[in-house]
Every structure is written in C-alpha cells, then in structure tokens.
C-alpha cells in the first residue's frame, strides 16, 4: 500500500462516527435535559393546566391533592408556575450569555490584536470588574438600576463579560504572530479581515465552551438575584423568587423544593455539556490517558477557572 493511500484511507464506517463530544455519556445526558427544558421554555404557556398567576385554587394544598405539585400561599398552582418559570429564566439566561460573550470577545480581540495603550486600558477595566465577587457587584448594579428582571440581566452582563475578554485576548495574543496569520497580512489583508478570517476561527471553540458553562452560572445568578428580591418581581413566575416565597412557609416544603430542583437540573445539564465540550476542545484537561513518554499537546487553550458564583 502506498504511503499516500495509507494517509487518505479512512476506517470503514468512519462517517458513522459521532464527533468526539457526543461519545461522552455526560454530554448526551446534559444535552437531553437541556433540550427538554428548552422545549418546556418555548411551549409551557400553551399547555400548563392553570394560568401561572391565577389565585383560584385552595391555598397551600400538598402535592397530589388536586394538583400535581401542590399550591402556594396564594393558591397558585406550583406545577404551572414551575413550567412557566422555565420560559422566564432560560431565554434570559441564554440571551445574557450571548450578550456577555459578544461584548467580551470584541473587547478581548481589540485588546489582544492592537496591544499598546488600548490593551492596557481595556485590561485594567476588566481587572477592575473582576476585583469584585460576581454576586456582590451584580447586586450593587441591580440595586442601583432598580429591582426588575431586566435590570438583573443587565447586572449579570456587567459582571460576566470580562472572562470572555481575558480568554479571547490571550488567544489572540498567541495567534497574531503565527506564520499563517503574518502570511495573510503579507498577502494584503487588512487588520480587520485578518482578524475575522485567520484568527477568529481559532477563538470560537474555547469561547463556545466557556459560554456553555456560563449558561449554568447565568441561571444561578439570575435566580439568586430574584431570590434576594432584586430580580423578578411578583407576581412573575420565576424559580428564585418562588424559593424566597418558601421562606415564609416552611411547612409547605413543596413550594421551595421543586423550583430548586428545576434550577439544579438546568444548571447541571449545561455544566455536563460544557464539561464534555471542554474535554473535546482542550487537550490539557482531557480525561483520556496520554501515554507516558509521548509529548503532550501544547497548552493551546487557556480556560479560566469558573470564578465565584453562588
């Protein structure tokens, strides 16, 4: 067999193989739960048994007695509010992650690509934001803007863009002096074209991993702010504020338990997915064993520690 043939020959059935991420059970479980919640988020208002704000049922009735998951102190159906809560929280969490990723990537790319005082100024700014624990800064911002769900989202964006900026900057810094990028510039590409055509494709992977892990953080932050009364306002059906409503009714365990489980499963799904994605993208944290004596892959992807979240 010629060398050429050996290099191009593919194992039989290779086209059937799933990409490496989907071979991890963690990713499959995570994706399944996430998709299920997305479906609920989109469709819940159409099929929940009671309107989420209707106070028409007997108060504080336990699960199984007329309603699936019981009712709260105002006679509202916990199950209906739980499902409607998905359509409150999940789209906002996804939106805020996309917004922070876009802002962070642009800032990081500009800082890393142009360097000099631009880099210095932008990075001092990110340092400043990161000098606060996220929840405390988000709380201050949300309180100053006035308590509302949308202000909580803005506060969450304010505290979460710097991590994308840092990752993007360090990637761009490493990439911009590589030969293929320099060659592109010598071919006459403008800085912006080069950034988009040559550099961007190598930044996308780590940013997507980071964003997936960040969806969980976003859900936790949003529901945490609502729990503190700085996010969703009554009577909005939102998981965090449902749990804070349970503080006043300890004996009705079902009011707080189920929203907490909802948050847990959503966050877990995205964490599973993100973790499996990281394994696929980042060779240094891979679970698979590299043979002793074989040079390990260079540290190409620097993912930050997931910092302080509730």
């Amino acid at each position: 067999m010629s060398l050429d043939g050996a290099l191009t020959r593919r194992p039989r059935g290779a086209w059937l193989r799933l990409p490496r991420v989907w071979r991890s059970p963690l990713a499959v479980v995570g994706a399944a739960i996430a998709v299920a919640w997305l479906v609920v988020a989109v469709s819940a208002p159409a099929w929940v048994p009671y309107p989420p704000d209707a106070q028409q049922l007997p108060r504080l009735s336990p699960p199984g007695e007329g309603t699936l998951l019981g009712t709260d102190a105002l006679g509202r159906d916990v199950f209906s509010r739980l499902m409607t809560g998905a359509s409150t929280t999940i789209p906002l969490a996804l939106g805020l992650v996309v917004a922070s990723a876009v802002i962070g990537v642009v800032v990081g790319a500009v800082a890393g690509w142009f360097g000099g005082w631009v880099d210095e100024a932008l990075m001092r700014l990110t340092d400043l934001v990161m000098a606060f624990p996220t929840v405390i800064l988000a709380m201050v911002v949300a309180a100053s803007l006035g308590p509302s769900l949308y202000n909580a989202v803005i506060a969450a964006v304010v505290v979460s863009w710097p991590q994308y900026a840092r990752v993007t900057r360090s990637l761009v810094l490493g990439l911009r002096t590589l030969n293929y990028v320099v060659a592109g510039r010598l071919l006459g590409r403008s800085p912006v074209t080069s950034l988009v055509v040559d550099v961007a494709p190598n930044v996308v992977g780590p940013v997507v991993v980071l964003a997936t892990l960040d969806v969980g953080a976003a859900v936790l932050l949003l529901s945490g702010l609502s729990f503190l009364g700085l996010g969703a306002q009554p009577p909005t059906a939102e998981w965090g504020s449902m749990i804070s409503g349970a503080l006043a009714n300890f004996d009705a365990w079902w009011i707080g338990t189920f929203p907490g489980l909802a948050i847990l499963t959503v966050v877990m799904a995205f964490n599973f997915l993100g973790d499996a994605l990281r394994d696929a993208v980042d060779p240094t944290s891979r679970t698979e064993r590299t043979a002793v004596g074989v040079a390990s892959a260079p540290q190409s992807v620097e993912l930050p520690v997931e910092e302080d979240r509730p």
Binding site: L26, G216, L220, S223, G224, F227, G240, I243, S244, A246, L247, F250, W253, G256, T257, P259, G260, I263, L264, V267, M268, N271, F272, D275, T287, E306, P310
Partner: peptide
C-alpha cells in the same frame, strides 16, 4: 467528576433552605 459537577450546579440559597428545614 459527576459529583463535583453536581456540586457546582447547586443553587446555594436553595440548599441552605433545604438544610435549614
């Protein structure tokens, strides 16, 4: 790995409430 990921996914304020109760 799964246990530590679940630990990262727990809403602490909810856990506090459940533990207190």
């Amino acid at each position: 790995r799964v246990v530590s990921l679940i630990g990262l996914s727990l809403p602490t304020f909810w856990l506090a409430l459940v533990a207190y109760d």
